[in-house]
């Protein structure tokens, strides 16, 4: 992995993912970034170790009398576990994203939402929403704020906003304090995986009117 990643997953999100407390859309973004970033993978190992320590020391509850025999019987009677092929990376899509999409970038069913932007909503459970965004090179995304948290992971190309430049592998974590207007860099079109846990807050009237249909 030669990717130079500058913007990483926050400690709070890593801990939430290690604890198993993120909505599926956020887990997808975190798992996809971890697949690209050894630094975060190593930090993540630390947060999983915290989970081990918490479980180790937080108190045992006696198992039922014949639980060991019952477990051995479960092991013996269960069919040998099927070793499924691990999901694989497909082009610019790391394995967890490829598994969610059911293929690589060519399998995505893009839908134009106007202004040079296309999107595909991914089938994650309720609570937060994940989508792929395809922004034509040089294109501006409508100016918006956030009611909750928005995670944006760049997979191809790059965008800039008021805070910095975000290239492949970079993750932008936007919260209620950030109001931004991302612009895709010239050159390659920008493809991002984004997740939100509340609808965005658009400034322009056109985008606000279109919002219910776009499900952004």
């Amino acid at each position: 992995m030669t990717m130079t990643i500058k913007h990483h997953i926050s400690d709070a999100l890593l801990m939430g993912y290690a604890a198993g407390q993120l909505p599926e859309a956020f887990s997808l973004v975190v798992a996809t970034h971890l697949s690209l970033c050894d630094d975060c993978r190593a930090r993540f190992a630390g947060y999983e170790a915290v989970g081990g320590a918490v479980m180790e020391c937080a108190g045992a509850v006696a198992m039922s009398e014949h639980s060991l025999a019952a477990t051995m019987a479960r092991i013996r009677s269960a069919p040998a576990p099927v070793s499924r092929d691990a999901p694989r990376r497909m082009g610019i899509f790391p394995a967890p994203l490829a598994a969610m999409v059911g293929g690589g970038p060519e399998a995505v069913k893009w839908r134009s939402i106007g202004m040079g932007v296309r999107q595909a909503i991914l089938p994650t459970e309720n609570g937060a929403r994940a989508r792929l965004l395809h922004i034509a090179a040089g294109q501006k995304v409508p100016d918006h704020g956030h009611r909750g948290m928005e995670l944006t992971l760049v997979l191809q190309g790059a965008f800039r906003d008021e805070t910095d430049r975000f290239g492949p592998g970079d993750l932008e974590i936007a919260d209620e304090d950030l109001h931004h207007q991302p612009i895709a860099e010239a050159g390659e079109d920008c493809i991002c995986l984004a997740a939100t846990d509340a609808p965005l807050r658009f400034n322009g009237l056109a985008a606000r009117l279109a919002q219910p249909f776009l499900r952004i």
């Binding site: 198993g20 993120l22 909505p23 599926e24 887990s27 997808l28 798992a31 996809t32 971890l34 697949s35 993978r41 993540f44 691990a86 999901p87 990376r89 790391p94 394995a95 967890p96 598994a99 969610m100 459970e125």
Partner: peptide, 11 residues
Amino acid sequence: LRKARRPEPED
């Protein structure tokens, strides 16, 4: 408990 899914990082 949550009847949810959790995408895992690439192996």
